[in-house]
Amino acid sequence: MAAGPYNYSYIFKYIIIGDMGVGKSCLLHQFTEKKFMADCPHTIGVEFGTRIIEVASQKIKLQIWDTAGQERFRAVTRSYYRGAAGALMVYDITRRSTYNHLSSWLTDARNLTNPNTVIFLIGNKCDLDAQRDVTYEEAKQFAEENGLMFLECSAKTGENVEDAFLDTAKKIYQNIQDGSLDLNAAESGVQHKPATPRNPITTDQPPNKENCSC
C-alpha cells in the first residue's frame, strides 16, 4: 500500500506536437500502454495520458498532452503549450514535408512555452527505413543547431520510444537540480509533491517556499 502507484515526487507536463499523421498519438499509446495502436483515429483537439516513471530513484508522474496535428486545431492546441516542462516535437522520417514544417512547430514551442522547456525532436516511423525521406544526419544537425535533443523512434516497434520520454524527464530533472528550473513558479510544468523528502534539490537552489499553503 505504502508504495502504491500514486506515490510520486514530481509531475512533469509534456506536450506532443507535430504534423498530422506523424504518429503522435501512437507514440503516446506506445509509451503508456506499451502497445502499438493500428488505425489510430485523428485526435480531436487534445487528449492526455499519464505514466509514472523513475528518474534518479525519484518517482515522476508524466502527464502527457497529445495534440491534434490538423491545422484546423492549431488555435486550440496552441493553448496547451502553456505550462509544459517538455515538448516532444515529432516528424515522420518517410515524409519530408513533416520535417520541413519543424521550424514552424519550433517557433510555436519557443514562443508559447517557458524558456526552460525541454524540446525533444523525434523522428518517428524509423521502422520504415526503406521509405526514408529524411536522413538521420540531417535531422541530427537540425537538432544540434537548435539545441534540441534528438532520437529516431518507432511507435510501431517501440524502439527508442521509452528513451525519448525518459531522456526528456532526465533533462528536466537535471534542470531542477541545476536550479535553472524554478519550482516555485506556477506553470513551470513541474509540480513537486512536498510530502516526500527532497534533500538533493534544496542543496542547490532554495525553492523552499512552495510548501506554504496559502
Binding site: 507536463k13 505550462g83 512555452t113 516555485n184 506553470e187
Partner: peptide
C-alpha cells in the same frame, strides 16, 4: 503567467478574443 513571465499571463492576450478564451478553456481543461 509562468516563471519570469513566460508563458505570458493569459490576460495579456485579452485583445485577441480567440486566444484569450481559448487559453482559459485549455487551462480549465487541463
Amino acid at each position: 503567467g509562468g516563471p519570469g513571465g513566460t508563458p505570458r499571463p493569459i490576460e495579456l492576450h485579452s485583445h485577441d478574443p480567440l486566444r484569450y478564451v481559448g487559453d482559459m478553456l485549455a487551462w480549465l481543461h487541463q
